[in-house]
């Protein structure tokens, strides 16, 4: 599999380590009143789509960037790859 790194171009998947669903970016507030339930959902409830999936990859043998990769789990086609840091900052800016 080839992952199109936004800065470095197409790179062999063996340079990367996979973490999981990009939903992991939406970490709840640990001090919230119902943190228990929020963290349980965050960690254990997951969609498992046959189709478009946003997921987190770490470029371990590369620039050590975390990427959010949009990939079709059926065809394996990769539609997009963004720096996770950029995605996180955008989310923060949008509140």
């Amino acid at each position: 599999m080839i992952i199109p790194h936004p800065l470095l171009g197409p790179r062999d998947a063996r340079e990367f380590v996979y973490l999981g669903d990009a939903a992991l970016l939406d970490r709840p507030d640990g001090l919230a009143a119902d943190a228990d339930r929020l963290f349980h959902d965050y960690l254990y409830l997951r969609d498992n789509p046959a189709g478009i999936h946003r997921e987190l990859w770490f470029h371990e043998h590369g620039d050590r960037s975390w990427l959010v990769v949009t990939r079709d789990t059926v065809t394996h086609a990769i539609l997009k790859a963004e720096l996770a840091g950029d995605v996180a900052r955008k989310r923060r800016a949008n509140g």
Binding site: V17, F58, R89
Partner: peptide, 18 residues
Amino acid sequence: AALVYRHMEFVRQCLRSD
């Protein structure tokens, strides 16, 4: 070592980019 470094970068880049 590698696992923790990966985790630390995850926290830095993805969870606490602030």
